[in-house]
Amino acid sequence: MTRIKLSDISDEKPVKLTIEIPARLHRDLCDYGLVLNAGGAEGAPKPEDLVGPMLSRFIASDREFARARRKQLLK
């Protein structure tokens, strides 16, 4: 089984965000959704559903950001 970093996509109330991404990144997100769904296209998460959890995971794992954020909040 492939171990990928994104495992849980929770259903939260979304906030609309409009962005443009390169076509290559869109294809990668489509492929990521397929892998996350064990290769099946039916029921695979859409690319737009992956972006939020991926960004959340990235921010949560950024130690420098956490350090800077704590410093900012302590001021």
Rank of each mutant, 00 (worst) to 15 (best):
Y32T: 08
I59P: 02
G33F: 13
S10I: 05
L6V: 13
A41C: 07
V15H: 04
I59Q: 01
E12K: 06
P22D: 14
L29V: 02
S10C: 08
K75F: 01
C30E: 12
A66I: 11
K75M: 09
K75E: 11
A66F: 07
R24D: 11
L73F: 15
R3T: 06
Q72P: 00
T2I: 15
R24C: 02
A44M: 03
A44T: 06
R67V: 14
A23K: 12
K13C: 09
I59A: 14
Y32I: 05
Y32G: 01
P53A: 06
D8R: 04
M1P: 09
F58R: 06
L6Q: 10
P14K: 01
I21A: 05
I4K: 09
I19W: 02
L6Y: 08
K46R: 13
T2E: 14
P53N: 04
R67F: 06
V51M: 12
E48V: 00
M54G: 08
K16A: 12
S7G: 08
G43R: 15
R67H: 11
L55Q: 01
G43V: 03
D49L: 06
I19Q: 02
S61D: 12
R24A: 08
G52Q: 13
G39I: 07
T18S: 13
E48R: 00
D28N: 11
K5S: 13
I4H: 08
D8K: 12
R57P: 00
R27K: 15
L25N: 02
R63F: 13
A60I: 12
A60K: 13
P45I: 05
R27L: 10
S61M: 06
M1E: 09
P45D: 10
A60W: 03
E20W: 05
A23F: 14
L29W: 01
E12C: 07
R3H: 10
G39P: 07
T2Q: 10
L29R: 07
A60G: 01
L17P: 00
A44R: 09
Y32P: 01
R3Y: 11
L25A: 01
E20L: 07
A38L: 14
F58H: 11
R57W: 00
R70D: 14
